[in-house]
Write a protein that binds this DNA or RNA. Structure first.
Lengths: 123, 123
DNA sequence: ATAACTGTATTAGTGAAATAATACAGTTGC
DNA sequence: GCAACTGTATTATTTCACTAATACAGTTAT
């Protein structure tokens, strides 16, 4: 069963999208594996203190992307492959790093200084 | 007069917030200086293809933070100091790097790999 | 002075995220 | 078989970002 203890909703990003990212990042990290069961919509919404429909939105998007399978009555399960995971890895890293380097350039911060700052901030 | 040519609204971040960041990052970069005039609400909204009220929201937040001054009838102007700029720099960098390192850890990516990826993505 | 610009304020409407309360059908465990 | 769980669907409401259309008062340039 996938563990949501490390999850905390924050910022202005929609909650359903944060759940989506949490699952995707877990898949990339290897902490979420093919065949893993997801908590039920009702259980997860209770655990996170949010509405079941919000969880349902996240899960239905995961299904559209082919990352989980759902059947009425049974728990949803992860459907991962090495190929899918590699795609996720590229997708998430590209997003993250494009945004970082663009942001740093807008502040006129050099690559070297940026790397130095990362060394500091990495705890 | 502050130049908004490099600005493009994108993503799910509210537009008023993107305008806010654009100004703050410009101040940190040094391309926006103390005393610089801002375009009028009406002009900027027309240039960006958005509603004047959205620009007004961004500008009123900037005023609350003491980064601009506005008086009825006259153009708004930047009110920056070395101290304010340094605060902005710390605020923006902390935000950006905390988010990066947290995200990388969720994907189980080491500091060394992260730095290597930044070297690649920095163009 | 006056026309054309400024900032500021108000009221109304749309769309999306999230909540709330149900309902129904399929599965699983005892 | 049956109770307790599952996924799925529907309708209504609230909040916020954003748009839209005005209105009014202060400034700036000619």
């Amino acid at each position: 069963m996938i563990n949501f203890n490390g999850f905390e909703a924050s910022g202005n990003d929609p909650i359903y999208h944060q759940i989506l990212l949490f699952i995707k990042k877990g898949a990339v990290a290897g902490t979420i594996k093919d065949g893993d069961e997801l908590p039920s919509r009702r259980n997860l919404s209770a655990l996170l203190g949010i509405n079941p429909n919000t969880v349902q939105k996240a899960f239905s998007l995961l299904e559209e992307e082919g990352l989980i399978e759902s059947h009425a009555g049974a728990k949803s399960v992860m459907t991962l492959s090495a190929k899918k995971i590699e795609s996720l890895r590229v997708e998430l890293l590209t997003e993250e790093l494009k945004s970082l380097s663009s942001s740093m350039k807008q502040m006129n911060i050099s690559k070297e200084e940026a790397i130095g700052l990362i060394e500091k901030f990495w705890k």
